[in-house]
Amino acid sequence: MNEAKKCSIVVFSGDMDKQFAAFIIATTAAAMGMETSMFFTFWGLQALKKKGLKTGKGFFGRMLGFMFKDIEGVGPSKMNFGGIGRWMFKKMMKDKGVTSLVELRQTAIDLGVKLQPCQMSMEVMEITKEDLIDEAADPVGAAAYVLDAQQADITLFI
């Protein structure tokens, strides 16, 4: 049997719509038998943050921690209007039977998608491994991603 094909996705964005795209493609790739990994960097890290946790140690870190949401708190890239857009999209999606981001993340975990946080982003934003969900893999650097992408049949930057 041939070795499984691989899919590697960088999740840079902390926008709800873009994270939807990332998780939909990741779960689908895994469902189609691909070995799938996601690399969460900068704003994308919000997808792995534990719910309701305030992060950061220094003044700026804590300020950022206040703005930095978890996967349920991220808003759409357009028409958020201070959270109204997020509420509206969540409602519209629920009414139409679209799976929520939290459920998609759980599905990704169930399908064995590797969720890798970026070490450097965590340092800058003063986020520790304990601030992230237990299912997150150990933090990695760019070289780990590049190696992953080299071997991948699909690479995406979202």
Binding site: I24, T27, T28, A30, A31, M32, G33, K96, G97, V98, T99, T107, D110, L111
Partner: peptide, 14 residues
């Protein structure tokens, strides 16, 4: 039935 993309495919794979 009633499920949207990508769940029909995901559930099928499971």
């Amino acid at each position: 039935r009633g499920l949207q993309c990508p769940m029909p495919v995901v559930k099928t794979s499971q």
